[in-house]
Amino acid sequence: MKAVDGVRAGDIRALARLITMVENQAPEAGEALRLLHSYTGKAHTIGITGAPGVGKSTLVDQLAREFRHRSKTVGIIAVDPSSPFTKGAILGDRVRMQDLCQDRGVFIRSMASRGAWGGLAETTADVITALDAFGKDIILVETVGAGQDEVEVAKTAQTILVATIPGTGDDIQAMKAGILEIAHIYVVNKADKEGADLVAAELEHYVSPIVEDGWQVPVVKTVAIENRGIAALAESIENHRLYLETTGKMAGTMEEKARHQVLAIAQRELMGKLLKIGANNGQMDS
């Protein structure tokens, strides 16, 4: 398949077009993903989630630079919400990633959520597959500004960062279930603001009981815009990867992702068929 050959050959245009095909759920997309799948499994996928305005895009920007310093190639998927009314979207995450655009070792793709629940687009996992097969070492997945229940990223990425900022003490209470539970690393961004230590302490307090099979969820303070704390954050991410590998959990995360991906594809196919039948019978409008 030509599209897949192009991706394997490192052709950026081919990769970009294949992602469009996948995103549009074009008929050839399934076959392309099937072929690409055998080349995957080498990338470390890192999800970054948190409420709007906590600095996810800036964290992604700085982490990408940090990993580039460490000689890793980086793929970025930045998801922003689609309008439920017009289906249009403003995808503005590149604004915070200006300089990365010049670096051939970084590929950035903006995705609209296209009506999906959970903080990602329906096909985000498939785009990760494409970037992995392309040969990216690190894949950073930025969710839409997420509140409490947008935990789709947990089934899609291997290391999950949940970012927060000072002044949200009550929010942490509210976050206790849901989004807080999916974190492998907490990030307290904008840590130069008053109350950062308090937020970090509160997180540590809630987190400390959550030691999952030997992984103690760390709390890392950053000022992303000034590149402070980013090296330490990258170190924590690296530690989590080592933890996944040494405990044999990495394979598990990949199986879980593949399972989730197959189920999602099946769900889409079934839903498509159902809507078609409904439309043909005149029982449903859309």
Partner: peptide, 27 residues
């Protein structure tokens, strides 16, 4: 956006190279 399109906004002070690269990656 209100007309139903997906708009990738890059911000100000873009060089021609940055614009071409963004258009390429975003297809």
């Amino acid at each position: 956006r209100d007309a139903g399109m997906e708009v990738i906004y890059t911000g100000i002070r873009q060089t021609p190279e940055m614009i071409v690269e963004a258009a390429l990656q975003e297809d």
